[in-house]
Nucleic acid binder design. Structure first.
Length: 889
RNA sequence: GCGGACGUGGUGGAACUGGUAGACACACAGGACUUAAAAUCCUGAGGCUUAACCGCCGUGCGGGUUCGACUCCCGCCGUCCGCACCA
């Protein structure tokens, strides 16, 4: 029995030589090599290793069901990098897991009557198979899903750490409430003021919710962006804008006691432009500002106005088109720099309660919104900054506010100063004055960033480990009672939170007083799950959330790869959470940034198709006729005309996806890998086309044929190098130069250029194969072996097959990256362009050792050069060795 | 409105810190092999002019710096993305 299997094994293992034009059967061979890798455990990463480490990570997927070719690009890129680094002698960690909590599972439960867990784990099983079929060099032993009890148990510990440290807290906050689905909606789930599923008008509701104190780290998160020099500039900029630091002043304005509401004597305003204080013409407060509420208490019309503002939609369209509206409260304030100057206090719909203090002073001459507002309600407009070149006597504000540089006017002691000095002077002046025992003005740094609300009124998420007790308040679940597990028997037949309506789950005794109490029924935002999974991969089975030794060995992630859509939230939350858990006691050490290098890859796009009745059609339901302008589509079965729509990112909803299984079954994984890496720069989108795929497939076959031919024609290389003729030398130079450049391109993630370089070398190799010369066989074989090793990170199965064909019985996945011979990287002759007056006229091939004088003389002797000179005297000759000669006449 | 990126043949794109623009691929055309097709192989090609060479033009448009600009600077035009009443 054992003998028979061994025999079968051998026949399967040895690739059959190609006689004539036999094709390489990728799908069959790929399965074989995947099995070989698995048996050899090539991709298992050890936490105890002498080699330098390299942690390569692609953003882990949400298990939505199936993987399509669009998803595969991200993993392919990471895999090429991981395989390359492994070959370069690194101990590589390349793990995979599942971002498995979230709403779709609950929706599926509602629609299909399957439990979220069942749905999720079934999807994971299917997608794991798909990823494995791509031949990714992943250490599957470290795999986990965030919905695994073991994972979210550790996350509950982290939550309690943060709570102890004061980095998690509870407060009341507004949410978008869907009154039909009884659920909280994220902003992006509110479309035109209505719930995206129910269509009901969304209400604003105050709920007590849990928050993480990310604002505590606002300054650090902003500052540290400077250290992330291997992140895209774009992402750093987006984060910086999101954090939105501004430097300004808090200014306290005394209310005119004549009609001030009881108990309120001043209004605090945040401004970044205290220099324009003399241009103030009114104060405006948010409809939710305490002063507005107090004033509205005995003013029904004002109350009505405030209510109307609150109803004003939160949708983007509404905010954009919303008119600036206000209501005069009748209250008056004293100007801080002129006691006799009284200004009106308005309630305005454009003032946000949750930025700054919810109150502003309006300076119409310097701010467009304030100007629009002042014009509408006929409030004074007083210019305070005179733009350069304007005359102070005649200058007036028209329809446009002036926010540029200039010199101060109409501003008392600030007159003549530039705005910056005026700013400083006002800071000094107001700082020295007091109101109600405090300074009238003080410097204040403000951030746009808000604390991170993590409460979700959902079932399928990590339960927040808190017990609410009437007498003890919010009590942390004691460590020995963790995890707080999701009840398996929840019901999903109606909207609302299944945890909240579960008959028994939430009723517990208080850990402190043993009295009756209830569990927190909110679960955590799934962004919490993804904020530390990369830490957990370093020790997925540890009893504590973080294994200090493993974390400090592997982190930071050396190369992180994912979509630009996560530029802000996921990446910012992760940067915060990493610091927070470290400061709360997890053994991460001194490290503050989790991701050393970040790469944001482009999407795979595809044409979209729509049937006559407006339904999306998938590519395999459509037949394309003709090409160019005559290109038309019809339905594959009914032959009805089909509209070809715009090229868009592959997505399930538009059905413009190509399923990975179908693709791999037909073409093989290597073709898919090669295709997504070719042509387009990796950070840019790549368009999926049938012809592009055919091109990739052709190359797979061509490479295989070429290697096969060389394997047949040339003997194994002798250890001693023969003497080479010109062809042999040229081939070896090409091979080693390619090796040098492909390595660099992979290192720099320029996969499309690496692919092009490999095509180029393949062309050289196959044309040299037609020639004969002493010693050439040796060079051909060397070239073939190098080619195989170079394509290995991108097309690992084909490379193994070729490697075996070349007579090796080792796994290529275990071979080190070949080293280029430095002597072959430098030519002994060089070809340089010769210009006359900056225009290229000819080129010159000359010994590398030639002196400047020799080059100059040779250049001037060229016929096209003398012709272009037309007898004119040469003024100057610029010779840049190895680059160019420019003759200036 | 604010911020950013990009613009190169029929197409995707290449060109290292300024130094032969169009590598490589796709599509196309011609040829070889074949009874034929597919597959494969060879050849050609930025545009204009030309029989061909030569020549001229050419990296969105206009200017500038430089011996020399796809690359750097200034001003436009266009496309895409992010943020958006943030005081």
């Amino acid at each position: 029995m054992a003998l028979i299997t061994a025999a079968i094994e051998r026949t399967v293992k040895r690739p059959i030589s190609l006689m004539g034009n036999e094709r390489y059967n990728a799908p069959a061979r790929e399965k074989h090599w995947q099995q070989m890798w698995e048996e050899a455990g090539v991709f298992t990463a050890s936490n105890n290793d002498e080699r330098p480490k390299c942690y390569v990570l692609e953003m882990f997927p949400y298990p939505s069901g199936r993987i399509h070719v669009g998803h595969s690009r991200n993993y392919t890129m990471g895999d090429v990098f991981a395989r390359y680094k492994r070959a370069r002698g690194f101990n590589v960690l390349h793990p995979m897991g599942w971002d498995a909590f979230g709403m779709p599972a609950e929706n599926a439960a509602m629609e299909r009557k399957t439990h979220p867990a069942q749905w999720t784990y079934a999807n994971i099983a299917a997608m794991r198979q798909q990823l494995k079929s791509m031949g990714l060099s992943i250490d599957w032993q470290r795999e986990f899903a965030t919905c695994d009890v073991n994972y979210y148990k550790q996350q509950q510990k982290l939550f309690l750490d943060l709570l102890k440290k004061g980095l998690a807290y509870r407060r009341s906050a507004k949410v978008n409430w869907d009154p039909v689905d009884h659920t909280v909606l994220a902003n992006e789930q509110v479309i035109d003021g209505r719930g995206w599923r129910s269509g009901a008008l969304v209400e604003t509701k105050e709920l007590t919710q849990w928050f993480f104190r990310i604002t505590e780290y606002a300054d650090e998160l902003l500052e540290a962006l400077n250290t992330l020099d291997q992140w895209p500039e774009k992402v750093r900029l987006m984060q910086a804008n999101w954090i939105g630091r501004s430097e300004g002043m808090l200014v306290r304005w005394a209310l005119d006691p004549a009609n001030a509401p009881k108990g309120i004597s001043e209004v605090e305003v945040y401004t970044t432009r205290p220099d324009t204080l003399f241009g103030a013409s009114f104060l405006a407060v948010s409809p939710d500002h305490p002063l507005a509420l107090a004033a509205a208490a005995d003013n029904p019309k004002l109350k009505e106005f405030c209510d109307e503002c609150r109803r004003q939609g939160t949708s983007v369209v509404e905010l954009e088109s919303a008119e600036k509206k206000g209501f005069d409260t009748g209250l008056r304030v004293q100007h801080p720099l002129d006691k006799d100057w009284l200004l009106p206090v308005w309630v305005a719909n454009f003032v946000l309660m949750d930025y700054g203090t919810g109150a502003i002073f309006g300076c119409p001459s310097g701010d467009q919104r304030d100007l629009d507002f002042a014009r509408k309600y006929d409030l004074p407009v007083r210019p305070v900054i005179l733009p350069p070149g304007e005359n102070a006597e005649t200058f007036a504000i028209g329809d446009e506010a002036v926010d540029g540089d200039g010199s101060m006017i109409n501003s008392d002691f600030l007159d003549g100063l530039d705005p910056k000095s005026a700013f400083e002077k006002v800071v000094d002046r107001l700082g020295a004055m007091t109101i109600g025992g405090r300074p009238v003005g003080e410097r204040k740094v403000n951030f746009r960033l808000r604390d991170w609300g993590i409460s979700r009124q959902r079932y399928w998420g990590c339960p927040i480990p808190i017990i609410h007790c009437e007498s003890c308040g919010a009590v942390p679940v004691p460590d020995d009672q963790l995890p707080v597990e999701l009840p398996a028997d929840a019901t999903f037949d109606k909207p609302g939170n299944p945890l909240d309506r579960h008959p028994t789950w939430k009723h517990v005794t208080c850990p402190k007083c043993q009295g009756p109490a209830v569990r927190e029924t909110d679960t955590m935002d799934t962004f919490v799950d993804s904020s530390w999974y990369f830490v957990r991969f370093t020790a997925p089975d540890a009893d504590t959330p973080v294994d200090a030794r493993a974390a400090q060995y592997w982190l930071p992630v050396d190369q992180y790869i994912g979509g630009i859509e996560h530029a802000i939230l996921h990446l910012l939350y992760s940067r915060f959470f990493f610091r927070a858990i470290s400061d709360a006691g997890q053994g991460i050490g001194q490290l503050r940034e989790p991701f050393r290098a970040l790469f944001t890859q482009g999407m795979v796009t595809h044409e979209t198709y729509k049937s006559q009745n407006g339904e999306w059609l998938s590519p395999d339901e459509v037949k394309i006729d003709g090409d160019g302008k005559n290109r038309a589509a019809r339905h594959a079965v009914s032959a009805n005309p089909v509209t070809i729509g715009p090229i868009e990112k592959m997505s399930k909803s538009k059905k413009n996806v190509v399923d990975l299984d179908a693709f791999v079954g037909e073409y093989g994984a290597d073709t898919a890998r090669w295709f997504v890496l070719s042509d387009s720069p990796p950070e840019r989108d790549v368009i999926y086309t049938e012809v592009g795929v055919e091109g990739a497939r052709r190359y797979v076959q061509r490479a295989w044929r070429l290697i096969d031919e060389i394997a047949q024609k040339t003997p194994q290389r002798a250890d001693v190098m023969p003497e080479f003729g010109p062809e042999g030398i040229a081939l070896r130079r090409a091979a080693h130069k390619t090796l040098h450049s492909v390595g660099g391109h992979i290192e720099g993630l320029r996969f499309n250029v690496a692919v092009a370089t490999l095509y180029e070398f393949t062309n050289v190799l196959s044309s040299t194969l037609q020639k004969s010369e002493d010693g050439l066989d040796w060079a051909l074989r060397e070239g073939a072996e190098l080619l195989v090793q170079m394509i290995a990170p991108m097309m690992p199965h084909l490379a193994e097959e070729c490697w075996a064909r070349l007579g090796y019985n080792t796994l290529l996945a275990k071979q080190p990256w070949p080293v280029a011979e430095p002597a072959l990287l430098v030519d002994d002759v060089m070809t340089i362009a010769v210009q006359v007056n900056g225009k290229r006229r000819d080129e010159l091939t000359i010994a590398r050792s030639a002196s400047k004088e020799e080059i100059e003389a040779a250049a001037l002797a060229l016929e096209p050069v003398t012709r272009a000179l037309e007898g004119k005297p040469v003024k100057k000759v610029i010779v840049v060795p190895q680059r160019i000669v420019n003759v200036v006449a």
